[in-house]
Deep mutational scan, measured.
Amino acid sequence: HMTFVALYDYVASGETDLSFKKGERLQIVNNTEGDWALAHSLTTGRTGYIPSNYVAPSD
């Protein structure tokens, strides 16, 4: 899985969403939902949907 870094803070709007903080590292599990991606946080160990425009690929 590619690793991504959060560009902004995001507060989950539902139970299936994943909250994260700017700078948090995430792995995209499934990116077939258009503007949303299923992601796993390497920081918190949690998995949920995130807005895909809130993250960018990290080196």
Score class of each variant (00 low, 15 high):
Ile28Trp: 04
His40Leu: 14
His40Ser: 07
Glu24Ser: 01
Arg25Ala: 08
Asn31Phe: 15
Phe4Ile: 06
Asn53Ala: 13
Asp17Phe: 14
Phe4Tyr: 14
Lys21Ala: 08
Ile50Asn: 00
Arg25His: 11
Leu26Arg: 00
Tyr54Leu: 14
Trp36Cys: 07
Asp59Glu: 13
Thr32Asn: 10
Thr16Ser: 13
His1Cys: 15
Asp9Asn: 05
Ser41His: 07
Asp17Met: 13
Tyr49Asn: 05
Pro51Tyr: 03
Val29Ala: 08
Gly48Asp: 01
Met2Leu: 12
Ala39Lys: 00
Trp36Lys: 07
Val29Gln: 08
Gly23Ile: 00
Val5Trp: 05
Glu24Asn: 01
Thr47Gln: 07
Gly23Arg: 01
Thr16Cys: 15
Phe20Glu: 00
Pro57Thr: 08
Val29Trp: 13
Ala56Trp: 10
Arg46Cys: 10
Asp17Arg: 10
Leu7Cys: 11
Trp36Pro: 03
His1Met: 12
Ser19Pro: 05
Gly14Ala: 11
Val55Ile: 13
Asn31Gln: 13
Leu42Asn: 04
Ala56Gly: 10
Phe4Val: 15
Val29Gly: 05
Val5Glu: 07
Asp9Phe: 03
Gly45Lys: 06
Tyr54Val: 07
Ser41Gly: 01
Arg25Gln: 10
Gly45Leu: 05
Lys21His: 09
Val5Cys: 09
Leu18Gln: 03
Phe4Lys: 04
Thr3Gln: 10
Arg25Asp: 03
Ala39Trp: 03
Ala6Leu: 05
Gly23Tyr: 04
Pro51Phe: 02
Asp35Phe: 11
Ala39Leu: 02
Thr16Ala: 12
Arg25Met: 14
Glu24Leu: 00
Asp35Glu: 12
Asn53Leu: 08
Thr43Ser: 10
Asn31His: 14
Arg25Ile: 15
Lys21Phe: 08
Val5Ser: 03
Ser13Arg: 13
Val29Met: 13
Val29Pro: 06
Thr44Ser: 09
Leu38Glu: 04
Tyr8His: 08
Thr44His: 02
Ser19Glu: 05
Lys22Val: 07
Arg46Ala: 08
Tyr49Ile: 07
Tyr8Leu: 08
Asp59Pro: 14
Gly34Trp: 06
Glu15Lys: 11
Thr44Asn: 04
Met2Pro: 13
Arg25Gly: 03
Asp35Cys: 12
Asn30Val: 11
Val5His: 05
Asp9Cys: 05
Val55Asn: 05
Glu33Met: 13
Lys22His: 05
Gly23Glu: 03
Ser19Ala: 06
Pro51Val: 01
Thr44Glu: 03
Thr47Lys: 07
Thr16Ile: 08
Ala12Trp: 03
Ile28Tyr: 05
Asp17Gly: 14
Gly34Val: 06
Phe4Leu: 08
Tyr54Gln: 06
Ile50Met: 03
Gly45Ser: 04
Thr44Trp: 00
Gln27Pro: 00
Ala56His: 08
Ala12Met: 04
Tyr10Glu: 00
Val11Ile: 12
Asn30Gly: 15
Leu38Ala: 02
Thr3Leu: 13
Phe20Thr: 02
Leu42His: 06
Gly23Trp: 03
Thr32His: 11
His40Asp: 01
Tyr54Thr: 06
Thr43Val: 12
Glu33Asp: 13
Ser52Glu: 04
Leu38Gln: 03
Leu26Gln: 00
Asp59Gly: 12
Gly23Pro: 00
Thr3Arg: 06
Ser19Thr: 09
Pro51Ile: 02
Ser13Asp: 08
Thr43Asp: 15
Gln27Ala: 09
Glu33Pro: 10
Arg25Ser: 07
Ala6Pro: 03
Met2Val: 12
Pro57Glu: 09
Ile28Cys: 06
Thr32Phe: 14
Ser13His: 11
Val11Asn: 10
Ile50Arg: 00
Asp17Lys: 10
Gly14Ile: 07
Ser58Thr: 12
Ala39Arg: 00
Ala12Cys: 05
Ile50Phe: 02
Thr3Tyr: 14
Met2Ala: 11
Asn30His: 13
Arg46His: 08
Gly48Thr: 01
Ile50Cys: 01
Val29Asp: 06
Ser13Tyr: 10
Leu26Asn: 00
Ser13Pro: 09
Tyr10Asn: 02
Gly34Asp: 07
Gly14Phe: 09
Arg46Thr: 05
Val11Lys: 08
Thr16Arg: 13
Trp36Asp: 02
Asn31Trp: 15
Asn31Ala: 12
Gly14Met: 09
Tyr54Phe: 12
Ala6Ile: 03
Phe20Asp: 00
Tyr8Ser: 07
Gly34Cys: 09
Lys22Cys: 06
Ile50Lys: 00
His1Ile: 12
Ala39Val: 13
Arg25Glu: 09
Leu7Ile: 09
Leu7His: 05
Asp59Met: 13
Glu24Cys: 01
Thr3Ile: 15
Lys21Tyr: 07
Glu15Arg: 08
Arg25Pro: 06
Ile28Pro: 01
Tyr49Gln: 05
Ser58Met: 15
Asn53His: 12
Glu24Tyr: 03
Ala12Ser: 09
Gln27Met: 14
Gly34Asn: 07
Gln27Glu: 10
Glu33Ser: 13
Tyr49Phe: 11
Val5Pro: 02
Thr3Ala: 07
Asp9Gly: 03
Gly34Met: 06
Leu18Trp: 03
Thr44Tyr: 01
Gly23Gln: 01
Ile28His: 01
Gln27Phe: 13
